[in-house]
């Protein structure tokens, strides 16, 4: 009898969440794979035509899709670098013995709390009006102009805003990593005559590998999946020059009503996200050093 009792409690505790999770995540995921083999315009009364793997073959001839894939890769590489460099620099600054470090940490983290959609609108104003104004006042109109009308600079603008959003968040993770480094290791190196730079490259940085693994994972996956900032800052423009992966899928499904083809893109999107993040975690995990 005790086993039966145990099972009863197990089900009582876990079934509510598993039920919701199955309806919201598991079933749509499986149904999504099924949809990707059909051609369908999303209208229930219209027939779904089975096309096998045609959607997945056709993808490679869709220029806008290939372009958004390339743009997303470029965006991701640039943002992962800038976010991690700036986040780590912030973390080193606010963990040094400076009196205002705590206040600075509080302020630097703040953009992360404001959602991507609203951040995009804030920066839209900064790029459109404030940058033009600064360009006139300072005469540096090579730097200060409306970035959002230039195809290339609009993408840099996205990197810029996304970095602004994420740097404070990544800073917090590096801070946790820095604080986990035992003080005596650093002190011992100091006594042995290691310079600040040597202490950073030989001691702090290698011991930060676990924090780097997490930070890279978080920035890589969130950059690759970016949507909100993309929508509110550039809306994919000018002339689709900043239409990133997630937006391309949204447009294909809900904009052009190509439900089956769009879903095939979404499945490919999932496979790429999974492959990239798993590879990254595997590779950086290998480089973590044991204390």
């Amino acid at each position: 009898m005790p086993n039966r009792n145990k099972l009863k409690w197990f089900l009582l505790f876990t079934v509510p969440l598993i039920f919701i999770f199955t309806i919201v995540v598991l079933i749509p995921f499986l149904v999504g794979i099924y949809y990707s083999f059909f051609e369908w315009d999303g209208i229930g009364a219209n027939p779904k035509v089975f096309v096998g793997l045609d959607n997945f073959v056709e993808l490679w001839g869709d220029n806008q899709f290939l372009r958004s894939m390339w743009l997303t890769t470029l965006f991701t590489v640039l943002s992962v670098i800038t976010i991690n460099v700036i986040g780590l620099a912030f973390a080193l600054l606010v963990t040094s013995r400076i009196q205002t470090a705590n206040a600075a940490r509080t302020l630097l983290f703040m953009p992360y709390l404001i959602g991507g959609l609203i951040l995009g609108y804030i920066w839209q104003f900064v790029f459109v009006d404030v940058f033009s104004f600064l360009g006139e006042v300072t005469g540096l109109d090579q730097v200060f102009f409306n970035w959002l009308v230039d195809p290339q600079f609009a993408l840099y603008g996205l990197v810029f805003v996304f970095t602004w959003q994420m740097a404070g968040y990544i800073m917090i993770i590096y801070i946790a990593g820095i604080q986990a480094i035992p003080n005596d290791v650093v002190e011992a190196a100091k006594i042995d005559g290691a310079s600040t730079w040597q202490r950073f490259t030989r001691i702090t940085f290698p011991l930060l590998m676990p924090a780097l693994t997490i930070s890279l994972f978080l920035t890589l996956s969130s950059a690759f999946k970016i949507y909100d900032v993309n929508l509110s800052l550039t809306g994919g423009g000018p002339a689709n020059a900043t239409e990133l992966f997630a937006m391309n899928i949204y447009q294909e499904i809900f904009g052009s009503s190509n439900y089956g083809f769009g879903q095939a893109k979404a499945i490919v999107f999932f496979l790429i996200v999974a492959a990239i993040t798993l590879t990254q975690v595997y590779m950086t995990k290998k480089r973590e050093v044991e204390m």
């Binding site: 919201v24 999504g32 999946k225 809900f254």
Partner: peptide, 24 residues
Amino acid sequence: VIFMTFIATMLIPFQTLMMPLMQF
């Protein structure tokens, strides 16, 4: 098995689920 299923699905982007979810 249940725990691993929870973890594995963390990799699924929202865009992969949105259309079938809305249909459902």
